[in-house]
């Protein structure tokens, strides 16, 4: 595990500079006018970022309203009987619900949960595994679809949420296995 960890951390430190060096020098080798072409590509950055704004604003506002109202406590009370049936620990339920909605929200919940139940017990390892193994689905959908003006997202959201649910079940299973 330690060897694996050091390999990956070296890789992530080296990846960006190596990639830049390789891409640009390979481009120069292939007689691409690197600076001119790079500037041309970089121009798009502004447009994409600006195009995302309406999608991101509306998505984050609806999540913020949900969070500020305290509706999550109500939601937890409603789904609690169901999740108890599946054997999901109720202490990790706020994390599971917040994770796809909000990155900063779930970061806060992870920290609070570990403060309340300890970092190295079942609950602590479970919430941090959960944070580490999934992305903020709503944010990713808003940004990625926003960048190309997609409004009809078809089955993207149910796919993402089901995957989050499976990640949660898998986290409960694997953490239970090692602890």
């Amino acid at each position: 595990m330690d060897v694996f960890r050091s390999i990956v951390s070296i890789l992530s430190a080296v990846a960006i500079p190596a990639l830049m060096l390789f891409f640009l020098s390979y481009g120069a080798f292939k007689k691409v006018k690197v600076y001119e072409v790079a500037v041309e590509g970089a121009k798009e950055g502004f447009n994409i970022a600006v195009r995302i704004i309406p999608y991101l604003v509306l998505m984050l506002v609806s999540i913020a309203i949900f969070r500020a109202s305290g509706a999550m406590d109500v939601f937890i009370t409603v789904v609690r009987p169901l999740t108890d049936l599946v054997g999901i620990p109720p202490e990790a339920l706020p994390m599971a619900i917040m994770r796809p909605l909000s990155g900063s929200g779930s970061l806060g919940i992870m920290t609070e949960t570990m403060q309340a139940y300890g970092t190295d017990g079942f609950i602590g390892v479970l919430v941090s595994t959960l944070y580490g193994s999934t992305e903020t689905t709503f944010y990713v959908l808003a940004v990625y679809f926003g960048a190309v003006g997609i409004r009809n997202t078809r089955h993207a959201l149910p796919t993402g949420l089901l995957a989050d649910f499976v990640a949660f079940l898998a986290a409960v299973f694997f953490v239970g296995l090692v602890l």
Partner: peptide, 16 residues
């Protein structure tokens, strides 16, 4: 975005 899209454009034109 500007930084990476610039680098990507070079890689793209080079056929990478």
């Amino acid at each position: 975005m500007a930084l990476w899209l610039g680098v990507m454009k070079v890689a793209e034109q080079a056929g990478l």
